[in-house]
């Protein structure tokens, strides 16, 4: 039972971690909580579902299409809603992000309607039995894919020129500019990557829960933010650890306390972290 809950938690947690990475990278570079992160998650899921409904394309093509749509939307968002406001009081881009979030959410509601959509492809997933715990291959696939994307991101940031330039921009924009780094481009790339990861997370959850709807991004967005704070905002390994821990905590809370208040666990964790250790488990950077 305990192992089962932990396993289910790790699956959801790996998806939270993907969204949390987007939050943390954007916070790291701009000091901005991107409220529209949950809407990019929703956009990725919708793009994939709609493409698969309309055309019989390969699943992986649709998956990368969804990620691409989320990524491009993220870059457009940065260009329209954040770049003109950069350098002002932090309150201003924050309110702009809230505006963007509600705009995208109601746009999706108008375009696609409020109804749940099921995922157009039915996968044949086997249930495995490992040490008395049942695991579906779907869970393993989600967990594996999430880990793959995380590894890719960490490698990108650590070992490529662009990744190092992003880190430099996050540390000190002016100095980065003096070193010949195109700061605007680094911010755009950060949005591109963070949004693509959120889009991937949205597609995985659309398959896992078999629903896609305009408000699907609100709760995962909130939970992923809690995960980012838990790990330490601005800290990439922190977002991964925070996401996994939060997923597990949420499932244990639902299993042993009350399933009705499952969604409240993330919020309780957020408040406790802010009270006890505001810089997060692995230590974040304050802006």
């Amino acid at each position: 039972m305990l192992l089962q809950q932990i396993l289910n938690g790790l699956t959801a947690g790996s998806v939270y971690a993907l969204i949390a990475l987007g939050y943390t990278m954007i916070y790291g570079i701009l000091g901005l909580i991107n409220f529209a992160q949950g809407e990019l998650y929703m956009a990725g899921a919708f793009a994939t579902v709609l493409l698969l409904t309309a055309y019989k394309v390969n699943f992986f093509v649709a998956f990368f299409f969804g990620m691409g749509v989320a990524a491009v939307l993220g870059v457009i968002l940065e260009r329209i809603a954040f770049r003109p406001l950069r350098g002002g009081h932090p309150l201003v881009p924050l309110i702009s992000a809230i505006g963007a979030s509600i705009f995208l959410q109601s746009l999706a509601l108008l375009l696609f309607g409020p109804a749940d959509r099921s995922f157009p492809i039915q996968f044949e997933f086997a249930a495995l039995e490992i040490a008395g715990v049942s695991v579906s291959t779907l869970q393993l696939a989600i967990f594996g894919a999430a880990l793959f994307f995380m590894a890719l991101l960490v490698a990108f940031v650590k070992y490529t020129k662009f990744g190092k330039a992003i880190m430099a921009t996050a540390l000190d924009q002016d100095t980065a500019r003096l070193m010949g780094i195109n700061v605007d481009r680094m911010i755009a790339i950060t949005f591109f990557i963070g949004s693509a990861l959120s889009g991937a997370a949205g597609i995985m959850m659309a398959i896992y829960y078999n629903t896609t709807y305009p408000r699907m991004g609100l709760l995962p967005g909130l939970k992923a933010f809690s995960a980012a704070v838990l790990g330490g905002v601005g800290n990439i390994p922190g977002a991964i650890v925070g996401g996994l821990l939060l997923g597990v905590a949420e499932n244990l809370g639902a299993g042993y306390l009350s399933s009705g208040y499952k969604d409240a666990v993330a919020f309780a964790i957020l408040i406790i972290v802010l009270l006890v250790r505001p810089k997060g488990l692995l230590g974040g950077r304050s802006h």
Partner: peptide, 21 residues
């Protein structure tokens, strides 16, 4: 008390969560 003592702008997201709860 937990939110406004901090330097970071967490109030928006904490109150968003509070609204949901």
């Amino acid at each position: 008390i937990p939110t406004l003592r901090l330097k970071d702008d967490y109030l928006a997201i904490v109150t968003l969560g509070f609204g949901v709860i």
